[in-house]
Design a protein around this nucleic acid. Sequence first.
DNA 1: AACACTTTCGGAAGCGTTTCCATACGAGTA
DNA 2: TACTCGTATGGAAACGCTTCCGAAAGTGTT
Lengths: 342, 342
Amino acid sequence: MQEVPTKVTLVDVARMAGVGIGTASRALSNAKGVAATTRARVLEVAAEHHYVVSPEASRLAKGNTGRVALVVPHLSRWFFGSVVEGLDSVLHHANLDVLLYQVGDQQDRHDFFEQLPARRKVDAVVVVGFQLEDPERKRLESMGVQIVAAGGQSAAYPYIHIDDYAASRQAMDHLLYLGHTRIAMLEAVDPDQPHLVSRRSPAYYEALTEHGIQIDPALVLSGPWGGEQGATMMSRLLSIPKPPTAVFAHFDEVAAGAMRTLRRAGLQPGRNISLIGIDDHPIAELTDLTTIRQKPFEQGVEAARMLLKLLRGEQVENQAVAMPTELVIRGSTAPPTTRESR
Amino acid sequence: MQEVPTKVTLVDVARMAGVGIGTASRALSNAKGVAATTRARVLEVAAEHHYVVSPEASRLAKGNTGRVALVVPHLSRWFFGSVVEGLDSVLHHANLDVLLYQVGDQQDRHDFFEQLPARRKVDAVVVVGFQLEDPERKRLESMGVQIVAAGGQSAAYPYIHIDDYAASRQAMDHLLYLGHTRIAMLEAVDPDQPHLVSRRSPAYYEALTEHGIQIDPALVLSGPWGGEQGATMMSRLLSIPKPPTAVFAHFDEVAAGAMRTLRRAGLQPGRNISLIGIDDHPIAELTDLTTIRQKPFEQGVEAARMLLKLLRGEQVENQAVAMPTELVIRGSTAPPTTRESR
DNA sequence: AACACTTTCGGAAGCGTTTCCATACGAGTA
DNA sequence: TACTCGTATGGAAACGCTTCCGAAAGTGTT
């Protein structure tokens, strides 16, 4: 039924150009040892007949795949999508094909590394936003596959990330500078890797301690990642005897949830209570949320560049590249109002 | 430098299992004509030695690629990311590999179809969220590549979508039911395909007309897609002599921008003015926005299923599948307050 | 007991490249 | 003029699999 497009093979091209098959191949692949005129003739014939090399055959003969796998936990989230966009853009310009593997839950992830669907399918793997476990990494390495992480970190392979501690300090220092002393923290635990402790929390404790502020355990809440969780945690904060004057959320989306709670309570963020997040997620701009900006797209770009080097066999100087973050002030933060500050 | 992993080929497995190469192949590919015990033995040996077929060789021999290309304009947006998640999940379960092509601007897109990077690389192409132009489509078809669209539409190939007209009517009818008569519309034009007129606008006009309400051109604003644009358009609406009591935005993100403007003006959505969007984007939940829900993940799943059928050579009954949408009531809509209703 | 199937199996051919090797041809060199 | 070398070129071998074909062995029928 399906009309098969006319297939032109290398042999056809060679014959039509009146050269040998070897010469044709060399001409097409830009290898040297071919007379200029010969090459021109081959190229012309090839173009004329819309010849395209068969990737399968080429790779079978060459031994490499020209493909890279992107392993991502969640694609529909801004952060991950942006990183992938960045990766994709530079990888494609390098003439590599990008294979997508979404591994939402532990099960998917386990399957991915167990079945090695990537085996012999890719030259490299980019892990986006999570940490590879040791056996997983070994597995990949034993297959001769390069590994790079974007938006995650590890001691075992190169990665691009932001400095979570520093970013959190930026947030906390801003709140402290504004004069807040009663600051809450909404910790978000990644359900995919619950045991992973973020460097964002230590920043909170140390910032307070350095300012001589007593830590109040009642002001630290944690829950799974997500806006709804932020909303819930905020509700809890509003039901303690002396609610905070400012809230530091680990993620903008959590902060957005908290903001909804505030609004429902008739409170105005930035007026009655200050709120700061991390990410500069688009929602931050649309809800007037002060935040610490990071640029996931750029992280993807950087990771891809690093990968390209690795693939070329070059040595990479920095195994870990930290991308900058910056404070973006919007309407959700302000000095504490007198009534509440004391 | 790079330690080449021990390669186990089919021949090795066959020898180790004490069978012929043909039998080994059949056993591994689950073809019939192999005794159960023989198959078991082969499988065991294969597993033991972590054997995985070489996709290149397999495909070279078979003639198909086992790969599908996903062409997506924006990955970092919720809608597109979700569709891709849906596609990815079912495609992978069908043992197909997913190749990702992000074509942000017209240039990328042109390059993609011009250079045919997909040629002989994929069996099918899924276009996510935009319309293929005629020459592009022909090009693909002439290569014997199947086409399916998710979240876009076309008369020329199968697609999954939502009924934009119906969804918009749901939104408008809700507003009208609540008693609003002065309803504005924030049209969003897709910068990628500016000439494409959405079915969302006609729904607005017809709903009003059917209710005997005079169309007021001052209440219809349009601009490029995005939250910032929504904010700007809302500002404009607040500066006309008699602002609307309700606003219908083509997208939740546009509505979110509008909401920010309202808040900055000291107005409360759902109290002073009603606001409704379309999508049920996560931001809608976090901002208490009433909306018409669509499920992009499901659209991806459905599109992938359809593609699978096509790939199997089966006939597809419905060239166009419309997925349901539903009204989700949140805090941003309410009957008009008396002062404003008249 | 002979015959016709059916099931299982082994191996050769072929998929479309790349690459290595042998050959041919000129151009320098002594 | 004879000899050496480097550059072009053709073609075979190899890449690792699927599939086709014929052989072998088992089953059932008359």
